[in-house]
Simulated scan of single mutants.
Amino acid sequence: MNEIRIKTVDTLSFYKKCTQGNSNEENYRYELMKPLEKMWQYLNAPMTPKSPGGYDVVMASEMMGIWTPRKDVQLIEGKIDELKQTGIFEDCDHVITTGIQRFTESGYLIPLEEFTVTILLGDPENKILMASEGYSGFGGIPGYMMLLVYPNDFNKTRLKSALAHEFNHNIRFTYEPFNHGDVSVEEYLVIEGLAEVFAEQLYGIEHRGPWVQDYDDEEMAYTIEVIKEGREAKGFDQVAAYMYGDEVAREQGYSPVGLSRNAGYTIGYHIVKEYLKNTGQTIEQATLTPSKIIVEDSHVFA
């Protein structure tokens, strides 16, 4: 198995200090975000703003739905122990090690030396985060994974699955780098479908994320048709409308395209499931397969 280090940032200690009045915005930058500095560099978010009130890791965090010390500490005070009690900090190494083992056994030498994992408290005032049952993640930069969680009864049993989802993104992007500004709808469908099917295979369909919806036949056919027509669209502003649906598109200032919540995630999941069924490939093999081949061999848009 690849000898890859796993480093988990101690976020709980930071949050405890926040409740005692001993941490602030600067501590957030240099205690919590410094281990992710290279990730933020890729995302063009500097550790400190270039001008007062400018864009930086704190503003970027808030846009993603992460609680920061700019917000009232009472929003998270009762959630720190809940996050700890989920067991995700103890389970983290096992999730990543299991993923590494599966790809190693499939013959892929992961070209990374270290994974940095950060589990953060979400902002309950962020409408988009709370609409996804209070949890989300980011694994778009290989070597870095974030989970953001506002613990509740739904998400606290699904955090291992969510981390496995982000791990799959990390592996996918070592094979086919992610270009945020030039990604197509079709590529994003596959990216998210691969990640959720991988997580499902590790932790079961009962721990599947809320981003995969259960559609009846009529809605499935309609959604496939709309996405089929738009699958060549490129750029995240275009992609977001197809992936997240009209409600989130409006919330984020994008043009809606006539889709329900998380439509793209749902269709991407079914594309990957159909591809695996039709080809007999494993999810690890599929993760290292070009998007166009997966879509074509799934026959979902046929």
Rank of each mutant, 00 (worst) to 15 (best):
M1K: 10
R5L: 14
K7N: 15
K7C: 13
V9D: 03
V9A: 03
D10G: 10
T11L: 00
K16P: 09
Q20F: 14
Y30E: 08
E31Q: 12
E31N: 09
M33G: 12
L36N: 07
M39W: 00
P46C: 00
T48Y: 13
T48H: 13
D56G: 08
V57G: 05
E62K: 11
I66Q: 02
I66K: 02
T68R: 00
T68E: 01
R70N: 13
K79C: 05
E82R: 12
L83F: 05
H94K: 15
T97Y: 11
G99Q: 01
E105L: 14
L109Y: 14
P111I: 15
T116S: 01
L121G: 06
N126T: 04
I128T: 12
I128L: 11
M130P: 01
E133V: 11
G134C: 05
F138T: 08
G139H: 02
G140T: 03
I141Q: 09
P142M: 05
M145Q: 08
L147T: 02
L148K: 14
P151G: 04
P151E: 02
N152V: 07
F154C: 11
F154S: 09
N155E: 01
N155C: 02
K156D: 03
R158F: 06
L159V: 00
A162W: 06
H165S: 06
H165F: 04
N168F: 03
N168S: 13
H169M: 06
R172S: 04
R172E: 03
Y175K: 15
F178K: 11
F178W: 15
V185L: 01
E196C: 09
F198Q: 06
F198G: 07
E200A: 08
Q201I: 10
H207D: 13
G209R: 12
W211Y: 12
V212G: 03
Q213F: 08
Q213P: 03
E219P: 04
I224H: 08
E225A: 12
R231V: 08
R231F: 10
R231I: 11
D237N: 14
Q238P: 08
V239S: 05
Y242L: 02
G245K: 04
G245M: 02
D246A: 00
E251H: 13
G253T: 08
G253I: 09
S255D: 12
L259C: 00
N262R: 12
A263H: 04
H270K: 15
H270R: 15
I271M: 05
E274P: 09
K277Y: 09
G280R: 03
G280D: 04
Q281K: 15
I294T: 10
V295G: 00
H299E: 15
V300Y: 00
